[in-house]
């Protein structure tokens, strides 16, 4: 695809021996193009995990994804499953429409904090309250990335964004919203968990959570599965990817602790 001759100049790049087995590669369902996300962005990790899950559960032929408005608005350029692009905040309403008319389909929404926890709060709450048997993937990075780093409903106290340049002031701007904890209170929520993808350990856990969430939907268990993923936004936070992941671990988890918030009762 690319002219790669120029790489091998002076740096000694090691390559595998022919006898080695391939143990990990890019999932086939992740469309083979470079993505538009900024370096180090969590979005692309979650995209990959989603496609790994769809592949492993062999549900491509009945999976429909809903892309939000936000950085992941172009998710369908990477996720090789049928996808609809919803109006800002309305992804779960679209998903509800599909799932109700076609209960055999596997439907997931993929939304950021602005989409799911600000403009779409009503849809979020009522979709979960109706116990729609869908998977909601929530990327919480505490900022509006696509529009240039404005304050999000989940922005932490004191965090600086382009619309709270002096840092979020709780008296003026309200409190960061813990939407996962909120919806866990609803009887329609079946599985609510908060994960992250900032290191390999958390990536493994998030994959397991996603697998569970989709499996619950396949099994037709009663309720909505909600996977929040505490994510970074190196560009929006004005940090390098490493700094961003470091900041995330030091600051975000205190307010948004990782772990299951609600799990099916018999598994407790």
């Amino acid at each position: 695809m690319y002219n790669m001759v120029d790489v091998y100049i002076s740096e000694r790049i090691l390559t595998p021996d022919k006898s080695m087995d391939k143990v990990w590669e890019r999932p086939d369902l992740l469309i083979d193009v470079p993505n538009h996300y900024c370096p180090g962005c969590s979005h692309s990790v979650v995209h990959r995990l989603l496609m790994e899950v769809v592949e492993e559960l062999d549900i491509m032929e009945r999976t429909i994804g809903i892309a939000p408005v936000g950085c992941s608005v172009l998710a369908y350029d990477y996720l090789n499953v049928d996808m609809q692009e919803a109006a800002h905040g309305r992804a779960t309403a679209c998903a509800s429409g599909i799932k109700r008319v076609f209960p055999d389909k596997i439907v997931f929404t993929y939304q950021g904090d602005g989409d799911l926890a600000a403009i779409g709060t009503s849809e979020t709450i009522h979709t979960v309250n109706r116990g729609e048997n869908i998977v909601m993937v929530f990327i919480n990075n505490g900022i509006y990335g696509m529009t240039g780093g404005q304050m999000a409903p989940t922005t932490l106290e004191g965090a600086k964004t382009s619309t709270c340049p002096e840092g979020r002031n709780l008296d003026l701007m309200g409190h960061p919203i813990k939407i996962a904890d909120m919806i866990a209170l609803l009887d329609g929520a079946y599985y609510v968990t908060r994960q992250a993808v900032h290191n390999s350990k958390t990536v493994r856990k998030t994959k397991k959570a996603l697998l569970k969430a989709f499996q619950y939907q396949i099994d037709g268990k009663g309720g909505t599965s909600f996977v929040e993923i505490v994510s970074n936004c190196p560009s929006g936070w004005k940090m390098t990817p490493l700094e961003a992941n470091d900041w995330l671990a030091k600051n975000m988890f205190e307010y948004y602790p990782l772990g299951n918030i609600k799990i099916p009762q018999k598994e407790e």
Binding site: P16, D17, M20, D21, K22, V23, W24, E25, R26, P27, L30, P34, N35, Y37, P39, G40, C41, S42, H43, S44, V45, R48, V197, H198, N199, S200, V203
Partner: peptide, 10 residues
């Protein structure tokens, strides 16, 4: 952890 899924492991 690779966001760009560009690593293959053997």
């Amino acid at each position: 952890v690779c966001p760009d899924a560009c690593i293959t492991v053997y």
